[in-house]
């Protein structure tokens, strides 16, 4: 017989549907019920896949992109020079900043002569694409593995420098 469309089974699991009457064993249903209950009982003793969230956390992928951080250098000075490339590259227009000139005596605070006096990221707009991280010429902004904390007010999601800049005690150690 030539290959008919009816004989082809791409998955190899083709089954012909028939309308045959059920046998007596099938009609009393009880064996089927017992079988089903066996299956559910097996699940009863299976290890549970639930991750107990606040105590346990799901492992993030190494390339996970979360909340931003503004880096400091080995001396604890902010690396950002307020060039604005991150704001320019941001597809969601989530970043705004105001630049200022470094005064004398502030060399330990800011690495470059120009710095961001205001640096704000709107976390509701941010899509965590990481383009700011890629655009930054000073390696000043990074996306961490932390999550953005929930809040009741929209204002709370506009992160200023108080929330973005890396804490001083976390500054990177000079490896030489």
């Amino acid at each position: 017989m030539a290959t008919n469309i009816k004989n082809i089974s791409l998955s190899g699991r083709k089954k012909d549907v028939s309308n045959k009457d059920m046998t007596f064993m099938e009609r009393i249903y009880l064996p089927a019920i017992a079988k089903g209950m066996g299956i559910t009982l097996r699940h009863f003793f299976k290890p549970k896949v639930t991750i107990h969230y606040p105590e346990q956390k799901r492992e993030f992928s190494p390339v996970f992109r979360g909340r931003h951080i503004l880096m400091r250098d080995e001396n604890g000075a902010e690396r950002c020079t307020a060039c604005g490339l991150c704001a320019l590259s941001c597809p969601a227009e989530a970043i705004t900043m105001t630049s200022a000139e470094r005064k004398k005596g502030e060399e330990n605070l800011y690495r470059e002569e120009k710095y961001a006096s205001v640096y704000e990221i709107n976390m509701l707009r941010c899509i965590f694409c990481g383009l700011c991280e890629e655009a930054c010429p000073k390696e000043a902004i990074f996306l961490t593995e932390d999550l953005v904390a929930p809040d009741y007010q929209r204002e709370g999601f506009i992160y200023g420098k108080d929330k973005l800049v890396m804490p001083l005690e976390d500054k990177p150690v000079n490896i030489k």
């Binding site: 559910t40 699940h43 009863f44 299976k46 549970k48 896949v49 639930t50 107990h52």
Partner: peptide, 13 residues
């Protein structure tokens, strides 16, 4: 609890 266990969950805890 039992419903959760049958469905591979942990239930109210």
């Amino acid at each position: 609890k039992i419903a959760a266990f049958f469905q591979d969950r942990v239930g109210p805890n």
